[in-house]
């Protein structure tokens, strides 16, 4: 490679060195390099520019880039840390780090809180909870009467809002998830433990030892 920047650095905006990302996340250097293969695949699915656009994440998560999905939108918003409308490689790896089986549970709980705090007020409000339930029902083509939805939302909100002030704060959320650990089941991706097996092509070209 000599004194020239690597091809990846030149070609991919926002590319960050795997050694740097590995030092900040639960991933090894090899795993970060494998994630780069996944990132490349996702980032060229609609617009081939080395960045993940909202439609590309939407396509990967819901198989339909045109059907808006509230939750895929929220995932995109949290991954897009710089808030510039695209997910860069570093943002992708750092965000996925939270989903690693070895990532701290507190990080997973914090991530879900931010995910469900739709309007970023620092609280999960009843209205937001209802909006998410309605979105989920719509996505799943499930029909429940408004009365039933209200009952589900009321009961859940009552259980989580320990202080009874009409909103769920981060402390209450932590307590609620501790009592209902299944709520963060989707925050752990076993795939991330063997990502190098899923995307082995980099192994032949890696130059850095873990």
């Amino acid at each position: 490679m000599g004194c020239y920047p690597s091809k990846r650095t030149k070609e991919t905006p926002g590319y960050e060195e795997p050694t740097v990302l590995a030092a900040e996340t639960p991933f090894t250097v090899s795993e970060v390099e494998a994630l780069y293969e996944l990132f490349k695949k996702l980032s060229r699915s609609v617009i081939d520019d080395g960045l993940i656009h909202k439609e590309e994440l939407q396509l990967a998560l819901s198989r339909n880039k045109n059907r808006r999905n509230l939750f895929a939108d929220r995932i995109f918003d949290l991954f897009d840390v710089k808030r510039n409308g695209v997910i860069e490689f570093g943002e992708f790896v750092r965000s996925l780090g939270v989903f690693h089986p070895n990532a701290p549970v507190e990080d997973k709980i914090h991530f879900t809180f931010r995910l469900y705090d739709l309007r970023q007020t620092g609280f999960i409000e009843r209205e937001e909870l209802k909006e998410m339930v309605v979105a989920l029902l719509h996505e799943s083509d499930l029909l429940l009467s408004d009365d039933v939805v209200e009952t589900i939302v009321d009961k859940t909100f009552c259980d989580a809002d320990l202080k009874g002030d009409g909103k769920i704060d981060p402390e209450e959320w932590m307590e609620f998830v501790s009592k209902n650990p299944s709520l963060i089941k989707n925050m752990t991706l076993p795939y991330l433990m063997d990502i190098t097996l899923a995307f082995p092509s980099f192994v032949l070209s890696t130059e850095v030892e873990d």
Binding site: A72, V133, A135, V153, L183, Y191
Partner: peptide, 26 residues
């Protein structure tokens, strides 16, 4: 199914949009 006893957050967590394992499916 007994919807009134459901935990709303549990219901939400089943969303396909939150199922990031689909990123790894080929």
């Amino acid at each position: 199914m007994a919807p009134v006893t459901m935990n709303a957050f549990e219901l939400i967590s089943t969303s396909q949009g939150l199922n990031l394992s689909s990123l790894f499916e080929k």
